[in-house]
Simulated assay, not measured.
Amino acid sequence: MAPSVTNSNATNTTTIVQFNSVTQLPIKLAGSHNFSPWKAQVSMLMRGHNLYGHLDGTIPAPVETTTSNNLTISNPDYVNWFCQDQLIQNAILASVDPTLAAIVAAATTTKAAWDSLNTAYANKLQTCIFSLRDRFAFLTKESQPVTDYLNQVRSLYDELATAGALVTNAELIVKILTGFGSEYREISAAIRARDNPIS
């Protein structure tokens, strides 16, 4: 569980959540190949603490200063928002590979860092998914042993799932049977003829 820091002043009490990136964000963003699970873990953690608005901008920054007794002073709400935003940005920084840290460090807010990472890796993730789907579609057993073919199918299936592009059981069965080729057509026909080929 994340420890929290309570800041008190004369006008209000606010809980600021700190994060332990090692235990709470174990998946390190290393590029487009693991962007989807990394994004999911950060999103779930922030939603769990009701802080997702720092990522998508629905918890905007309050005004920086306020007037009290004709004096302009720091707005305590902004100070609390800024402290929380910096701690979230720091958690994100700690959960990315050092080669990607500059993207997060250069951002002025958590939302800016989040948007930069999405821009950098979400499009590449789609390209990666298209490539994996293409490889999955054209994979065949050819002359390799059945176990090697099935291991390749499973590997691509797992990569697609990790990228957030799930393959249904029905698609998986069709892929496997199609990839076997004519040598296994009788077995394929028997499986396809079943009411429920999965069971």
Score class of each variant (00 low, 15 high):
97 D>E: 10
171 E>L: 05
45 L>G: 02
16 I>K: 08
142 E>C: 08
76 P>Q: 04
155 S>C: 13
191 I>A: 11
79 V>L: 07
173 I>A: 05
173 I>F: 06
199 S>K: 12
171 E>P: 05
152 Q>E: 09
89 Q>L: 05
192 R>W: 10
30 A>W: 01
198 I>Y: 07
19 F>I: 01
19 F>G: 00
4 S>N: 11
177 L>Y: 04
45 L>T: 06
191 I>W: 03
192 R>F: 15
3 P>H: 04
102 A>N: 11
82 F>I: 03
109 T>D: 10
43 S>E: 06
74 S>D: 09
35 F>G: 02
97 D>N: 14
85 D>L: 01
190 A>E: 02
34 N>W: 08
25 L>Y: 00
36 S>W: 04
186 E>H: 11
191 I>H: 03
41 Q>K: 03
172 L>G: 05
96 V>F: 00
119 T>A: 13
151 N>I: 04
123 N>A: 12
18 Q>Y: 02
6 T>A: 03
197 P>Q: 15
103 I>Q: 12
46 M>R: 01
38 W>F: 08
118 N>M: 11
192 R>P: 00
103 I>K: 10
112 A>R: 07
192 R>I: 15
72 T>D: 10
81 W>N: 00
66 T>Q: 05
10 A>Q: 03
3 P>Q: 12
43 S>W: 11
177 L>D: 10
157 Y>T: 06
90 N>P: 00
171 E>G: 07
7 N>T: 13
153 V>C: 11
13 T>V: 15
